[in-house]
Design a protein around this nucleic acid. Structure first.
Length: 472
RNA sequence: GGCCCUAUCGUCUAGCGGUUAGGACGUAGCCCUCUCAAGGCUAAGACACGGGUUCGAUUCCCGUUAGGGCUACCA
């Protein structure tokens, strides 16, 4: 049984890579575990936590174990596992594989700067490595803050067997004695991650390749504990359009923000999956297909830029595909917010008129304005062309008369009126429809005219046509 | 600075020694059409550079360059 985890930290990052990890778990028929890495007390927020949960739920990513799901390996918040880390720290301490370090951040910073000035690697110099027992006790008793460092083997090399990148070799001598427990008593990422992955019996660690360089440190930790390391697969990172790491600067902060912008979760999932992964030439995948086809073999090695052009295209495709009821549910609140309460049936008809023309859900609001607001502002150049033209006026007058007598006011009958009028006057349909569209919508773009006329209804249509006839 | 990863159209990618280097988004044009979309067709557009290896390199190796990552008491 494969066990995969997604371990985001609630610090306001984007969290979209988790989708691929989930896809892998589901593809393999394994367990997907959600673990919250909230050991950074400065930056972790509960809002960010909620954003993670909501984002994943919105995308349809479910977890078998984790917050709100339970599981036999909890707790799934790292801040609730402090005694577990402590126990393991003590084990390393007693085995001489870790040590107390009383160097202050200020000292360390200074040393780093000095090393940089000498063009040397800014590594920890091991000052506290051999502190005598009494000295440690004295310093601890005096209340001096300390961290715990991992004493790493100074020679040899550590090989990461990466499922995507192959074997990557790191020389141990280039690593330094990194901190495993901070002075606030919280574990650092590299330590907590190893302890948890082992205790939670994680078999495959899938994560962004920004963690590749951390992996040798973690492997060394596995070795210090005498544990078997999981398999690693480092997925390509997802970058912003400036090739920098995705962050607040790039707009949406969290997956859930994309819901508000008007994306559909299925479009988002499809898009994320296709970033850094391909299955032949296929672009559009249902959720089931994604699960069925997602594999590490199709994952590429290079970082991908998250761009909205293709996402928008996919979103439009998915909108066209969804059920009318769902589209109505999505649009209705936006329309009511913008234009107040209206007859539900009317709103439904309006929404459906735009079903095939939306890329983002909220676009419905400006596009459908003329359906809700009677005081139209007419496109000036179009006005010049159609309203200042005697021919058009005559046509609109005729049209108004005929529509006024029309009963019942249905699309089929409306169409007959337009066509009849065109034939009668030996005109092209467009000569009638264009000025009519301007009169009814204020613009030259709208859903098909007969639909618009029918939905607006006789009263509004006559009133708007009448109004334009008065324009000089 | 050191170490690591990566490098095919603007973007996402296919390619796994011999291809007219394929698809998709975006862009442009045409068709369809009552407009706008959608849809269809067409066009422009890429193997970062330099060395090897090979009969033959986009593909394998080395270097350069570029981008990214790690080098934190962030994850």
């Amino acid at each position: 049984m494969i066990r995969v985890r997604f371990a985001p930290s609630p610090t306001g990052a984007l969290h979209i890579g988790g989708a691929r990890t989930w896809l892998y778990a589901r593809n393999q028929g394994g367990k997907f575990i959600l673990r919250i890495e909230d050991t950074d007390r400065e930056r972790s927020t509960s809002e960010a936590n909620q954003a993670i949960f909501h984002g994943l739920e919105w995308l349809g990513i479910d977890w078998d174990e984790g917050p709100n799901a339970g599981g036999d390996f909890g707790p799934y918040f790292q801040t609730q596992r402090l005694d577990i880390y402590k126990k393991h720290i003590e084990q390393l301490l007693s085995e001489g594989k870790a040590y107390y370090c009383f160097c202050t951040p200020f000292e360390l910073k200074k040393k780093r700067e000095e090393a940089a000035a000498r063009k040397e690697a800014p590594r920890y110099d091991g000052k506290c490595r051999k502190l005598p027992e009494e000295e440690i006790k004295k310093l601890k008793d005096s209340g001096k803050p300390y961290v715990i460092r991992f004493l790493l083997p100074p020679v040899g090399e550590t090989i990461v067997h990466d499922k995507i990148r192959g074997d990557v070799v790191f020389k141990n001598e280039l690593l330094d004695d990194f901190v495993i427990m901070k002075s606030d008593g919280f574990p650092t990422y590299n330590f907590a991650c190893v302890v948890d992955d082992h205790l939670m019996e994680i078999t495959h660690v899938l994560r962004g390749d920004d963690h590749l360089s951390n992996t040798p440190r973690q492997i060394l930790l596995y070795q210090a504990f005498g544990w078997k390391a999981p398999k690693f697969a480092h997925l390509p990172m997802i970058l912003g359009n400036d090739k920098a790491r995705l962050s607040k600067r790039h707009g949406a902060t969290s997956v859930i923000d994309y819901s508000g912008i008007g994306y559909l979760p299925e479009a988002m999932l499809n898009y994320i999956a296709r970033l850094g992964w391909a299955s032949g030439d296929q672009e559009v995948f249902s959720r089931e297909e994604l699960i069925q086809k997602f594999s590490l073999k199709g994952v590429s090695k290079n970082a991908a830029i998250f761009g909205t052009d293709k996402l928008n295209w996919l979103n439009g495709k998915y909108i066209r595909k969804i059920l009318p009821e769902r589209l109505i549910d999505l649009c209705e609140p936006l329309l009511i917010e913008a234009y107040g309460n209206h007859d539900v049936e009317y709103i439904k008809k309006v929404v459906l008129a735009f079903h095939d023309r939306l890329v983002l859900i909220p676009e419905i609001v400006p596009l459908s304005k003329f359906f809700f607001v009677d005081d139209l502002s007419y496109d000036p150049t179009a006005m010049e062309k159609y309203f200042k033209n005697e021919n058009s006026k005559k046509i609109l007058k005729e049209l108004k008369d005929k529509l006024g007598k029309l009963e019942p006011f249905t699309k089929a009958n409306i169409e007959a009126v337009f066509k009849g009028l065109a034939k009668e006057q030996g005109r092209k349909l467009g000569e009638i429809i264009h000025p009519c569209r301007l009169a009814l919508t204020g613009t030259l773009q709208s859903p098909p005219m007969y639909d618009v006329v029918e939905i607006l209804g006789k009263d509004r249509v006559l009133q708007r046509l009448g109004k334009t006839l008065l324009i000089k």
